[in-house]
Design a binder for these strands. Structure first.
Lengths: 156, 156
DNA sequence: CTCAGTGCAAAGGATTTGCATGCCG
DNA sequence: CGGCATGCAAATCCTTTGCACTGAG
């Protein structure tokens, strides 16, 4: 994560809002407000990029691996989190796009690290235009994923 | 695979050419022309879409699972094949884009099936335009992947 | 002949699950 | 209190690897 200092106040607001939205959805899904669930959600809120399970575990020594996996599954089902495919055999998890806004990813082909990346709106429009062609091929399209692949700063 | 009848002759030509290119690259990589290697390459040539390991095994009863995995790894290293990420926990493999041409994928979020999909050239140009923005974020970009996600004909 | 390639079975590694116990509401 | 949630360990599932045997050149 890398932000300019004068963004911090704004960022804190974002976090507060996000936490509120997350809590609300968890309650709506009938999930209790347990400690490990809060930890997992909090880590995702703060990260600002998709995290792997090891990264999530590193954030809290008390968090059991099985609980982390179980919580992530519940968060995904509750529409709070989303699973992101990288290039290694670790799944990554990030907040659901309905909370963070639609975006795309930069993926490091060496270490698997994933960062968020925004694209111009007319690019998204171009994508919508292709859905019709895709559906004529027998698919019913309801989402897309677009990633730029390369080497991250650390692996360059 | 689904093609019009009057395309068949052309298709056969494609396959002949592809097999020739594949053989050439395997030799260039110092790989012997063994039976199981031929089977794996042949299945990928004929499929016309990324296949999972089970699908590859189904194509030939004699093919051992470990040999299939090992051959796929060798084909990838030799620049003959490419690994494709789907949405389930099965990797898919297809011929390298330098043999088939650049394309994108339709991915079924229910069964994981992947099919090829071509996009307009100006869309690709738009992608190139974004690489600079991505590199200002610390990544050195050298490829991209763009998939449309939905339900395939069988899962609809 | 030689050494790369193969098949089998065992090993690895990420993720899931069964079960007894703990904690939220 | 009643049940959902947790932690531990065992179980799964895809993929990789060790090893002795086979076959391509």
């Amino acid at each position: 994560m890398e932000r300019r200092l004068d963004d911090v106040a704004h960022v804190d607001d974002d976090w507060t809002d996000l936490h509120a939205s997350v809590d609300q959805r968890l309650r709506a899904a009938g999930l209790r407000n347990s400690r490990s669930r809060q930890v997992v959600a909090d880590v995702l809120v703060r990260a600002g990029r998709p995290l792997s399970l090891p990264e999530i575990l590193d954030a809290d020594a008390e968090l059991a691996q099985s609980s982390a996996y179980r919580n992530l599954g519940e968060l995904v089902d509750a529409g709070v989190a989303r699973r992101v495919e990288s290039v290694d055999d670790h799944a990554r998890f990030e907040l659901h796009e309905s909370l963070t806004g639609h975006h795309h990813h930069l993926v490091c082909t060496l270490c698997g690290r994933v960062e968020d990346f925004d694209v111009p709106n007319d690019f998204e429009v171009g994508i919508d235009a292709m859905v019709h062609a895709a559906e004529s091929q027998g698919f019913r399209i309801d989402a897309h994923r677009f990633d730029l692949l390369g080497r991250c700063a650390r692996c360059s």
